[in-house]
Design a protein around this nucleic acid. Structure first.
Lengths: 153, 153
DNA sequence: GTCTCATGAAACAAATAATGTTACATGAGA
DNA sequence: TCTCATGTAACATTATTTGTTTCATGAGAC
């Protein structure tokens, strides 16, 4: 696989859950993400442990959002996923004896650190509510021109 | 493999090449990077095409730096490598029909774009000469306390 | 001229990580 | 008690980076 798409996927279904207002099963969420229910449970496990969502077994069970969308940011979701590595680029050797490589690593480290800080800062500025609002704006813009949004929200 | 470490590796050997002042063979460079000569040639191919280094066949052949280290930045090297993907995180679907996912992608895209811009800007601020200077500083700091740097520069 | 050293490049193998899949246990409600 | 749905472990698949083998080519030494 190319890259980690869990953050993208989980945000997608989180917004759908907010729209639904009732529990959605892993199977239904999996359809939205074009994947497997087990993958959904695996991804959602972190959010459940963080208290952002709740899962219920049995009839009428499934997943519901249990946090205030206006208080939870994309960074919070990222952390709930276990703060996966951001970069596809890295050092060849973590603790090199060679001073040349130490200098190279230090310089790269600094640049990558700053970029990561900015990324997380940006993610921390966007709440789930803001994302949802953006979606509603897109929805209104399309209303009338296209029939509906996908997944039958 | 964990991540793309070509940038880290190639910067490492570039600095060694600057120190050496004479052609270094792929085999020797491979030793420094703890890898295979073929891997070295593969990585260096981009830099050669960009005109940053030159390769010579036969006896006394090998690789030499043909650019002004004070004029070439880490970003230039990154581009010469083919501008490999920076992030390990990505979208689940590139062109989703779902408006929710479009909103999610747009928001993430924005954050990641800004972070990448910052990263490349930082890399563009560091020249090979600056990296080399940093190494020499480290070398002087260690001088006397340790016997020598690695790879017998 | 021939031999050796070195790069150039293609083809293939190994290692790694994300994702997909199967299987079974557990608990909630009809 | 039966069905639905999650929880989890184990294994398969796929993509990508890196490592390896192999052969061709050219430059210099002898």
């Amino acid at each position: 696989m190319r890259h980690d798409s869990r953050l993208s996927g989980v945000l997608h279904v989180l917004l759908h859950m907010l729209e639904a207002g009732e529990p959605i099963t892993s199977e239904h969420l999996a359809e939205m993400m074009s994947t497997n229910p087990v993958v959904v449970r695996r991804i959602m496990a972190g959010l459940r442990d963080a208290g952002f969502v709740h899962s219920e077994k049995g009839h009428g069970g499934g997943w519901t959002v249990t946090c205030d969308p206006a208080q939870v940011t994309l960074d919070d979701i990222y952390v709930a996923l276990g703060s996966p590595p951001v970069f596809a680029l890295g050092h060849r050797s973590e603790n090199p004896a060679c001073l040349v490589e130490q200098a190279v690593n230090a310089s790269l480290e600094s640049a990558f650190h700053d970029a990561e800080q900015l990324l997380l800062k940006r993610l921390g500025e966007v709440t789930l509510a803001a994302l949802s609002a953006d979606f509603h704006q897109r929805y209104l813009a399309k209303r009338g021109t296209k029939k509906d949004i996908s997944h039958a929200v």
